[in-house]
Design a protein around this nucleic acid. Structure first.
Length: 479
RNA sequence: CGGGGCGUGGCUCAGCCUGGUAGAGCGCAGCGUUCGGGACGCUGAGGCCGGAGGUUCGAAUCCUCUCGCCCCGACCA
């Protein structure tokens, strides 16, 4: 049963997505093409994701700092592959203070260059290493076509930039971030299972030696890159002269990394869990975990019910994120729908009949409508809700994992591949090169999402070239 | 940048073809009745019809130009 204002998923998936963003009050378009206003409810979700990431970034030894929005254009030009990758989508400032600037400034599409230039000044000795810095920032990429959260001209993210003495240490850093920060947050906080692995050369970040990513599956079977981590080798160190003196007095270039996750994660959250009734949020990223809806007619009932609500929620501060919806100009039904559309995990209704019976009605969002509603005793409500939130967090993950597994296919040949990739991910032996990837993309819209870490034990036949190979790739169409 | 579509109260749109006093629903404000799954009645506020030229006695409506937005494709976290 779809609510007014939300297109069903099977009718038009991308319109459904836009409707959720609109109806759940997450974001809206602004006067600037491609730039969205993130509304309070959407921003509150971002704050929870941001805090989860920030906590892990700090736990793994990094500190936060801030680098400028504007970057001298010459900086961007220094790393050849990097500029080639970003040039088409960079916005430039050429006038300021009423005058033409001597050198144009670009609005950062990412900050490797200005941070590289800074690190070159900061790093002198092996004793200065490693440098482990993260920044929370906005960046701008002038995209042709935008969609709220998934692809916007300006977006919010964190970008970590580190410098190390050895190649091994940089590689370890790159992988540590992927597993201990990104996969951990996306799986255990956002309840979205991911595939982890290496990007092919075609899909690699411009300027990186190796790019790793985590890939989440959306309900339409498409992939969404939920976090990327780059081993930059010595590319940027060479371009920006990031050098250090070793303990035996030699001069060496640093090994650097960079890694990022963005507001796009909110798009992943929406498309992984939500349904035709609106947003569905895992409790850990729900700005409101519990909403209490008091039900009353008379003033007398009102005061009695509100008193009971106050008593029930007495110990909740700091334990649950909750709200008492005592607006008296709206019907209970309207409120029920509003909180469902906004994705609040648990809704508690309490009215005069409950006062008599010592009960409350508890609804869980992952089972929409009246089906998710049960009446329970008021005594022990706290424990019940606590248990329910944990259960829902797990249930959403389990459901997403089951979906991911059912929609990950194998394919023995290209014909089978074409058919399966319409429905989800395809995990195959793949021995092709970049040109083969291009051809597959042109013909099926699918790309290699990752070469997963769990590779094959035995060799098999490449679905595309027919050659024997050990290499496994996961293909999918992607956002 | 190609291909479509659209600009009329806050929102969704009708009116345009065939020129003649700007409309509806929703929302909003006030009052009353309601209230256990998107309540209802009454009253009311709110728009020089994206902008500029032109045709005409008269333009939301016809003509020219312009600005902007949305959707679909090529590029991308």
């Amino acid at each position: 049963m779809a609510k007014a204002g939300i297109t069903t998923r099977d009718k038009d998936y991308s319109q459904w997505y836009l409707d959720i963003v609109d109806q759940a009050d997450l974001a809206e378009n602004s006067g600037v093409r491609g730039c969205m206003v993130i509304k309070p409810h959407g921003y509150a979700i971002w704050e929870l994701i941001r805090d989860a990431l920030d906590q892990r970034i700090k736990e793994t030894g990094h500190v936060n700092a801030y680098f400028p929005l504007l970057i001298p254009k010459s900086y961007l030009m220094k790393e050849a592959e990097h500029i080639e990758g970003f040039a088409p989508e960079v916005a430039e400032v050429t006038r300021a203070g009423g005058e033409e600037l001597a050198e144009p400034l670009v609005i950062r599409p990412t900050s490797e260059t200005i941070i590289g230039a800074t690190y070159a000044k900061w790093i002198r000795s092996w004793r200065d290493l490693p440098v482990l810095i993260n920044q929370w920032a906005n960046v701008m990429r002038w995209e042709m076509r935008t969609r709220p959260f998934l692809r916007t001209a300006e977006f919010l993210w964190q970008e970590g930039h580190t410098a190390h003495a050895t190649e091994e240490e940089a590689e370890q850093e790159t992988l540590k971030i992927l597993h201990d920060v990104y996969a951990d947050v996306v799986e255990n906080v956002m309840a979205i299972p991911v595939y982890r692995g290496l990007k092919t050369e075609r899909e690699r970040f411009a300027g990186a030696v190796r790019t790793y990513s985590i890939e989440a599956m959306m309900q339409d079977g498409k992939a969404l890159q939920a976090g990327t981590s780059h081993n930059l080798g010595q590319n940027f160190a060479h371009s920006f002269e990031i050098k250090y003196q070793t303990s035996d007095n030699r001069e060496e270039y640093c090994w650097t990394t960079s890694w990022g996750a963005s507001t796009r994660l909110i798009g992943a959250l929406i498309m992984a869990h939500s349904d035709d009734d609106g947003l569905v949020l895992p409790p850990k990223v729900a700005p409101l975990q519990v909403v209490l809806v008091p039900i009353f007619k008379t003033d007398e009932e009102r005061s009695m019910v509100l008193e009971a609500v106050a008593r029930l929620t007495a110990g909740w501060k700091g334990r649950f994120r909750f709200k008492i919806d005592d607006r008296d100009n709206l019907s209970m039904g309207f409120k029920a729908n509003e909180w469902e559309v906004k994705g609040v995990p648990v809704r508690v209704e309490i009215g005069p009949k409950d006062l008599q019976k010592g009960t409350v009605a508890v609804s869980r969002r992952d089972r929409p409508g009246r089906e998710g509603k049960t009446f329970i005793e008021q005594a022990g409500l706290d424990e019940h809700i606590e248990g329910l939130l944990d259960e829902m967090q797990q249930a959403l993950y389990d459901r997403a994992l089951a979906f991911q597994r059912v929609h990950t296919f194998e394919a023995a040949d290209y014909d089978e591949f074409k058919q399966k990739v319409e429905q989800g991910f395809v995990r195959v032996y793949f021995d092709g090169n970049g040109d083969d990837e291009d051809r597959i993309k042109a013909e099926t819209k699918a790309t290699v999402r990752v070469l997963p870490f769990d590779q094959a034990e035995e060799a098999g036949r490449c679905f595309f070239t027919g050659r024997q190979t050990q290499r496994i790739a996961i293909f999918a169409r992607s956002y």
